[in-house]
Simulated scan of single mutants.
Amino acid sequence: MSSKSLKSRIQLKVRFNECDPLQIVWHGNYLKYFEDGREDFCIQHGISYLDMKEYDLATPIIKSNCEHKLPLQYGDTFEVETSFHPVDAAKLVFTYKIFKDDKLVCIGETTQVFLNESQELVLIAPPFFLDWKKKMDLI
């Protein structure tokens, strides 16, 4: 498998409703920031959730982790860097880095699998996904 990875970067701002009473971002919201980064990545690189739906597939997250380095606070502007890491298995692996003023705030990773319309696990990478990986020079 290729060692190449694709990336995207999106800028976001901490909203009031994402903070606890101390105006620090509640830890669960970092997974939402990962989702914002992942959705932006997929749109930029031509493999959106709508593409999955077109092929009657869902891609639920089966694993996620998040390691906090520094807190974000209400009003902070920050960037989410999302990287796709190709693997041989029929799954999507993304890593995330959140930066504020070039300081690393948080790192994380998610893994998604493919489910068909009957909600059964798809064990072989769907043809459109393999075509996309070829187009992106990942295989």
Rank of each mutant, 00 (worst) to 15 (best):
K133E: 14
C42I: 01
K134S: 14
R9N: 11
K134M: 06
L138T: 04
E35D: 04
V122T: 11
L104A: 10
Q44E: 15
R38M: 04
C66K: 05
S64V: 11
F94R: 00
I107Q: 07
D36R: 03
L6W: 01
D88A: 15
L22C: 06
P71Y: 02
G108L: 02
M136R: 07
E54I: 08
K63W: 01
T59K: 08
E54N: 15
N17D: 13
P126G: 08
D40I: 09
Y55N: 12
A58V: 04
I62T: 08
C66H: 04
T82V: 07
Y30M: 08
K134C: 06
I24Q: 06
A90L: 03
L104Q: 03
L104R: 03
V80M: 05
S64K: 05
L138K: 04
L115T: 01
I124T: 14
I62Q: 04
T77R: 15
P126W: 01
W132A: 11
Q11A: 14
Q73I: 09
S118T: 13
D131Q: 13
I47D: 05
L115W: 07
I98E: 00
E79F: 07
D36G: 10
G37W: 00
T110D: 02
K4H: 10
F16E: 09
K13C: 05
V122C: 09
